[in-house]
Lab assay of single mutants.
Amino acid sequence: TFYNFIMGFQNDNTPFGILAEHVSEDKAFPRLEERHQVIRAYVMSNYTDHQLIETTNRAISLYMANL
């Protein structure tokens, strides 16, 4: 899942690491979701930090390219 992918960046001092920290603390994050459209919609609806949203979009693109 995307959640498992992004958790691989925990403790990294990178934008993906920052995203992983936010996702791990977000109890409502769709952890079992595999459809990138649902993940993107969730982030757009629940996150207000523009940098975090952009990082999510980049992470989703990388995740999709590696499926």
Results as ranks from 00 to 15, higher is better:
residue 56 T to R: 02
residue 25 E to C: 11
residue 14 T to Q: 03
residue 27 K to H: 10
residue 8 G to V: 07
residue 51 Q to R: 13
residue 49 D to W: 05
residue 8 G to I: 07
residue 47 Y to S: 02
residue 56 T to K: 01
residue 18 I to W: 12
residue 4 N to R: 07
residue 1 T to P: 08
residue 36 H to I: 14
residue 52 L to N: 01
residue 38 V to M: 09
residue 13 N to L: 09
residue 55 T to E: 05
residue 2 F to I: 05
residue 6 I to H: 01
residue 8 G to Y: 08
residue 58 R to C: 09
residue 38 V to T: 07
residue 4 N to G: 10
residue 48 T to S: 11
residue 54 E to R: 08
residue 39 I to G: 00
residue 36 H to G: 15
residue 36 H to D: 08
residue 48 T to D: 09
residue 31 R to G: 03
residue 48 T to K: 13
residue 37 Q to T: 12
residue 5 F to P: 00
residue 4 N to I: 10
residue 51 Q to N: 13
residue 16 F to V: 02
residue 30 P to C: 03
residue 23 V to R: 01
residue 63 Y to H: 09
residue 7 M to W: 03
residue 42 Y to G: 01
residue 54 E to V: 09
residue 14 T to G: 15
residue 40 R to T: 10
residue 56 T to S: 10
residue 56 T to C: 13
residue 35 R to T: 07
residue 32 L to S: 12
residue 6 I to M: 07
residue 12 D to R: 09
residue 40 R to W: 15
residue 5 F to I: 02
residue 59 A to G: 03
residue 48 T to W: 08
residue 10 Q to W: 12
residue 28 A to S: 14
residue 47 Y to D: 01
residue 59 A to R: 00
residue 54 E to H: 09
residue 62 L to A: 11
residue 32 L to E: 14
residue 1 T to Y: 06
residue 33 E to I: 03
residue 34 E to C: 13
residue 44 M to G: 06
residue 22 H to R: 12
residue 6 I to P: 00
residue 65 A to S: 11
residue 12 D to Q: 14
residue 61 S to K: 13
residue 51 Q to S: 13
residue 55 T to Y: 10
residue 24 S to A: 12
residue 1 T to G: 10
residue 31 R to M: 07
residue 47 Y to H: 02
residue 21 E to V: 14
residue 59 A to W: 04
residue 37 Q to K: 08
residue 59 A to M: 08
residue 65 A to C: 10
residue 48 T to R: 11
residue 62 L to T: 05
residue 52 L to F: 05
residue 25 E to T: 14
residue 44 M to K: 10
residue 59 A to Y: 05
residue 56 T to D: 02
residue 44 M to A: 11
residue 16 F to E: 02
residue 15 P to A: 12
residue 46 N to I: 06
residue 46 N to W: 06
residue 15 P to H: 09
residue 32 L to W: 13
residue 59 A to C: 05
residue 66 N to Y: 15
residue 38 V to Y: 09
residue 14 T to H: 07
residue 43 V to G: 01
residue 46 N to K: 08
residue 32 L to D: 15
residue 31 R to S: 05
residue 4 N to K: 11
residue 36 H to N: 07
